[in-house]
Each structure stands twice: as structure tokens, then as C-alpha cells.
């Protein structure tokens, strides 16, 4: 049995709790609140609510941290210093330096760091990775990826928050990046709501070309890809892949997102992987080096927006 602690607040904490209850060989033994609210959702009321500092040594094997980006790095470091393994939403840090320091603390304390939210557990992206690795498209030529959602409503880095998923998957499937150029536009709707858009041309080390679109100008989450090579093409569009559409007398037709119609949710797949990682059944899929590589590309994209020029990625530099 793996003993889990959950750290966070609000809806996200509830969602995580819910997912963990469906995972085998897991005991949720503690909720660590990240805010001062006394209320705990009723489904969690049997679990002890504690402060981080009050956790007894050895009480939990892993803490799952679901807090806003700016709080993540400090909490990961704190958990690692208690020799507790960590799961945390991606991105796990806001800068390359912060990322390195987080990884170093985890390594020094011999704890695993599991990023949560990677596309590597999404079946459509998993399938695409397998196809590409099996040579289905041949030598890669142009890879087009797009990810869009509503604006989060607060200031945030689109390259980190939206770009991370895309870049993590891109690098894991197509290899390292040579250089990147990016453009970004920020404005507001007439209603005052923020709208943000970014586009990147990413030149991979093997010279294939990736076009990555990140949009906080959508009304709902959308994602698509098209991978072309000298032997074929693989394409997917979430807007055209819903297994169920509902038409009622309401004016808007209702659609369930294609990756919500799964027997085991993407989040549950990730959590099961974490358990397998901790019990030695599987090696952790996302390595510290991979985290750092993605961070370097995301930061290079941001730098390119400022300079208007392509930014070349430093090679090596594993932690």
C-alpha cells in the first residue's frame, strides 16, 4: 500500500481526491490544506487534515501537490526535504533556475518527482507517439500542433501553462530542439476578458519543423495535431472527434469532449503510473532531464518573443 497525502484546495483538490480513490494499492492518509479555509469537502471528511510540518516521519510515501504555479517549487522542495516523493501539476517551476533547484533537491533527498498533466497519458497522443516511433509517417517533415482553451483569467505564461504539454510531448516523440522562434499577441475582448495567442516555429535537431499554436482565445478546450512525413500523415482534431453529440431544443448543441469518454480517465492513468513508479513496476516516464529540456524550450520561446529572433537551445546541461 502506498500512503498518499494531498496538498491543495478547492475544486482541483476534490478532483484529485476523487481520482486517487479509484487507484488500487493506495491509501489517502492525509489532506494538507494550502489555504486557511477550515472546510473540507464532505467526501474527504474522514481523512485527517494536517499541516505540512505536522506530518510524522514515514507517514506518507507521496504527496500530490495541486496548487497554483507560483507556489509549486517551494512546496516540492519542502516535501523532498521531508524525504517524501512528489507528484505535482505541470509546469513545476517558473524558470530554468527554479526547475534545476527543484530537481536537485529531489535528487539529493532521493525522492521521485512525478509531473501530472502530461499528454503522455492521453490515449490519442500515446497512439500518435507509437505510430511515429513505428515509422508510420516515415521521416518526419512538418508537425503541426495546436492547443487552445479559455483564458485562465489571471496573468500567466502561455508558453509554460499551455505550451508545456505540447512541448513535453513533442520532445518525447520527435527528439531534441535546435532552435525556436515565437510570436505572441495579448489583448482583451470588448467585455474586458483577456485574450492571448502565441505561435512557435520549432526546428528540431533532426531538422524537421514543428508549428505549435497556443491559444487562450477559445471558448472551450480544443486540441489538434497533424504529423507529416515522407511515408504518410497522421491527423487528429478534438473538434471533429467527439463520439457523442447531443442535439436538444437548446440553441447550442452539446458535445462531450473526446478524451472525456474513457473508461479510465487520463488523470487516473497518470496516478496509476505514479503508483507503479513508486513500487518499481514501471520506470517514471518523465525524467528530470526531460522536464529541464521542455523548460529550456519554453523559456527560449518567451525570449524569442522579446527579441523577435530565433533562439538556439543550449545542448547538454542535464542536472
Amino acid at each position: 500500500m502506498i500512503s498518499i497525502g494531498l496538498l491543495g484546495s478547492g475544486k482541483q483538490l476534490e478532483q484529485r481526491f476523487e481520482a486517487w480513490t479509484k487507484i488500487n494499492h493506495v491509501n489517502i492518509v492525509a489532506i494538507v490544506k494550502s489555504d486557511d479555509q477550515d472546510d473540507v469537502p464532505k467526501q474527504m471528511k474522514d481523512v485527517k487534515v494536517k499541516n505540512f510540518e505536522d506530518l510524522k516521519s514515514g507517514e506518507i510515501d507521496l504527496i500530490d501537490i495541486c496548487v497554483p504555479l507560483d507556489e509549486r517549487a517551494a512546496l516540492i522542495r519542502q516535501a523532498a526535504q521531508f524525504s517524501v516523493n512528489v507528484a505535482c501539476d505541470i509546469p513545476i517551476a517558473q524558470s530554468i533556475e527554479e526547475m534545476i533547484s527543484v530537481i536537485k533537491v529531489c535528487q539529493a533527498n532521493d525522492v521521485h518527482l512525478f509531473p501530472v498533466g502530461t499528454l503522455r497519458f492521453s490515449p490519442v497522443y500515446q497512439n500518435a507517439t507509437q505510430q511515429v516511433l513505428d515509422g508510420a509517417i516515415g521521416q518526419p517533415g512538418v508537425m503541426r500542433l495546436a492547443y487552445g482553451d479559455q483564458h485562465p483569467g489571471h496573468a500567466a505564461d502561455i508558453f509554460l501553462e499551455l505550451g508545456w504539454h505540447q512541448l513535453d510531448w513533442l520532445l518525447a516523440t520527435f527528439g531534441d530542439v535546435d532552435h525556436v522562434i515565437a510570436k505572441q499577441v495579448k489583448t482583451t475582448r470588448a467585455s474586458g476578458q483577456s485574450v492571448e495567442y502565441a505561435v512557435m516555429t520549432v526546428r528540431m535537431a533532426d531538422n524537421s519543423i514543428a508549428h505549435v499554436e497556443l491559444s487562450w482565445a477559445e471558448t472551450q478546450r480544443t486540441y489538434s495535431f497533424e504529423f507529416t512525413g515522407d511515408a504518410g500523415m497522421l491527423e487528429f482534431d478534438s473538434c471533429a472527434s467527439q463520439p457523442i453529440t447531443i442535439h436538444t431544443d437548446k440553441p447550442v448543441l452539446s458535445k462531450r469532449s473526446s478524451d472525456a469518454t474513457l473508461t479510465v480517465s487520463i488523470l487516473e492513468r497518470q496516478l496509476a503510473h505514479i503508483v507503479n513508479g513508486l513500487t518499481g513496476v514501471e520506470a517514471p516516464l518523465v525524467t528530470p532531464d526531460a522536464l529541464l529540456k521542455v523548460m529550456r524550450v519554453a523559456m527560449a520561446a518567451r525570449q524569442s518573443v522579446e527579441t523577435g529572433k530565433p533562439v538556439y537551445i543550449e545542448r547538454g546541461g542535464s542536472v
Binding site: 521521416q139 518526419p140 517533415g141 512538418v142 522562434i181 510570436k183 505561435v199 516555429t201 526546428r203 531538422n207 524537421s208 519543423i209 508549428h211 507529416t228 512525413g229 515522407d230
Partner: peptide, 19 residues
């Protein structure tokens, strides 16, 4: 712009991305 020849054995570019 980035152009390259990655799909065919030809003497001109066959792919690219223009910003």
C-alpha cells in the same frame, strides 16, 4: 521562414513554416 526538403528527393524545398 524555415524551409527544407524532407518528403521527396527533389532540388527545391517541399516543406516549411512562415511567420
Amino acid at each position: 521562414a524555415e524551409f527544407d526538403t524532407r518528403f521527396y528527393d527533389i532540388a527545391v524545398e517541399d516543406c516549411g513554416s512562415v511567420l
